[in-house]
Nucleic acid binder design. Structure first.
Lengths: 195, 195
DNA sequence: GTCTATACGATGATAGAC
DNA sequence: GTCTATCATCGTATAGAC
């Protein structure tokens, strides 16, 4: 669920999320955002110094919240398979529950300035390492048979992130069903006994 | 391999591919393209009526060539598993060999006008149906166990398309190795005997 | 904190000479 | 077919009143 947007700054952020998702960061103008908030465009600059700052704010909170959410979901799981299953489920739930922001965080990296880009990539790398660690531990314990850890973790995260592209709350499948579908698919492909 | 760019129009197209890939369609100006071609920006309008026409041209040729390439690769395969393997391999080879265009065709859909968007989505749907048909035939023949055809085909195409995001010709793995990795992963997850 | 007004560069696209 | 010159518009961002 999106954060409450009771403050003007919150409204600006929410309108930006809606518009960046719909048209993209570059195609969205400050005027567009102001119009969607019912304020004048100059008023935005009281809350954010630049349009870039709005984008960076969206990226940062999304990445922080995602990592926190997944780490928490992991904590209860006992073995590597359960951990991977929980991580996949949490990743998908987050990307469905906060679909717009998650979509932006996945697709608008190019809109970031060089410094902001570096900061976000650092956060992404740390997030990815959560998955890599689980898989690595599973390999060492003999549970998983994996040919290339780097590519496999990339594949898993990419395919689970892609739910932001098509998921509809009123759609044929619930997020629970989709999460099960994905984790079954992934774990079937990875488990040692299948080779 | 990219098409030869011996004509001015070809140079404009190639420069646009380079720039759209690098900065995105919106962030690329006509001046940028002209500069990269060593011509004046007004000269571009002799070859293309609008910037949109350049983007649409890139999309069209990429989609046409991709479908042709995959269909040809399929024709020799005998059974469903071999067909799926060939389709995955061909899809990945194309996306690696024509990485820039393929990346654009995957990421710049939002840059298309409404009418152009519809035309390309129609082409994509037809392309996707090639994969869906193979999987469907495999299910009916009892080779594949698949819980959701629509989502599975989407997952397969998405994950294979994502090689455009990270593949480097001088990288650790060859395109052949990556294609094998992906098709092994996918087919392992799908084959009936694993359940 | 929000408004009106404005600066000012860049943009896509056109006109017309050669 | 490519050039120079130009247009109208829109972009981000700022100044200063209230």
């Amino acid at each position: 669920m999106p954060k409450t947007a009771s403050t003007t700054k919150g409204q600006i952020k929410q309108a930006s999320i809606d518009l960046f998702r719909e048209k993209g960061y570059y195609a969205t103008s400050i005027s567009d955002i102001a119009r969607n908030c019912g304020i004048q465009k100059s008023s935005i600059y009281y809350h954010y110094a630049t349009k870039q700052d709005i984008l960076f704010d969206i990226f940062k909170t999304t990445m922080v919240d995602l990592e926190e959410y997944v780490v928490k979901a992991l904590s209860a799981a006992e073995n590597f398979e359960a951990k991977l299953k929980e991580a996949i489920k949490a990743h998908i739930f987050f990307h469905v529950d906060r679909q717009k922001e998650a979509f932006i965080a996945d697709s608008e990296l190019r809109g970031l300035t060089a410094e902001n880009y570096k900061a976000i990539v650092r956060m992404r790398d740390r997030y990815d390492s959560i998955f890599q660690r689980i898989i690595q531990d599973g390999i060492e314990a003999g549970d998983f048979l994996v040919k290339d850890l780097k590519i496999l973790s990339y594949v898993i995260i990419t395919m689970c992130t892609a739910v932001t592209n098509y998921f509809r709350p009123e759609g044929r499948l619930s997020k629970e069903e989709i999460a099960t579908l994905y984790s079954d698919f992934i774990i079937t492909a990875m488990k040692r006994e299948h080779f």
